[in-house]
Amino acid sequence: MTTPADDPGRLDDLSRRLTQALQILDLDVDYPLLLGLAAETARSVGPDGGPISTFLVGYAAGMTRTSGKQAVTEAVQRAVEVATQATRNTGDGGRDDGWAHTAQ
Rank of each mutant, 00 (worst) to 15 (best):
T2Y: 07
T2C: 06
T2E: 09
T2G: 06
T2F: 06
T2H: 08
T3N: 12
P4A: 12
A5D: 09
A5K: 06
D6Y: 04
D6G: 04
D7Y: 01
P8W: 14
P8G: 13
G9Y: 01
G9I: 01
R10G: 03
L11F: 05
D12R: 15
L14W: 13
R16W: 14
L18N: 10
T19Q: 02
T19C: 12
Q20S: 15
Q20G: 15
A21K: 15
A21R: 15
L22V: 07
Q23N: 03
Q23E: 10
I24W: 05
I24A: 13
I24D: 05
L25F: 06
L25G: 14
L25P: 14
L27D: 00
D28Q: 06
V29A: 11
D30L: 02
Y31C: 08
P32E: 06
P32S: 11
P32M: 13
P32H: 10
L33F: 03
L33M: 09
L35D: 00
L35C: 00
G36S: 03
L37W: 04
A38E: 01
A39I: 02
E40Q: 04
E40G: 05
T41L: 01
A42W: 10
A42T: 14
R43D: 15
S44P: 13
V45L: 15
V45Y: 12
V45T: 15
G46D: 14
P47D: 10
G50H: 10
G50N: 11
G50C: 12
P51H: 02
I52Q: 01
S53R: 15
S53F: 07
S53L: 12
S53T: 12
L56T: 11
L56N: 11
V57P: 01
G58W: 00
Y59R: 01
A60Q: 11
A60G: 08
A60L: 10
A61M: 01
M63T: 10
M63C: 13
T64F: 09
T64S: 10
T64E: 13
R65C: 07
T66L: 07
S67V: 09
K69E: 00
A71L: 07
A71I: 03
A71W: 04
V72G: 08
V72L: 14
V72Y: 11
E74H: 05
E74K: 09
V76H: 04
Q77I: 01
Q77H: 10
R78E: 09
V80K: 05
V80A: 06
E81I: 10
A83L: 05
A83M: 14
A83D: 04
T84W: 10
Q85T: 09
A86K: 15
T87P: 06
T87S: 14
R88Y: 04
R88F: 06
R88Q: 12
N89D: 08
N89R: 09
T90Q: 05
G91L: 05
D92Q: 12
D92L: 12
G93V: 10
G93S: 05
G93M: 08
G94S: 04
G94V: 00
R95P: 06
D96T: 00
D96S: 03
D96M: 03
D96F: 03
D97F: 04
W99L: 15
W99Y: 13
A100H: 11
A100T: 11
H101I: 00
T102E: 06
T102V: 13
T102D: 02
T102K: 14
A103P: 02
A103S: 11
A103I: 09
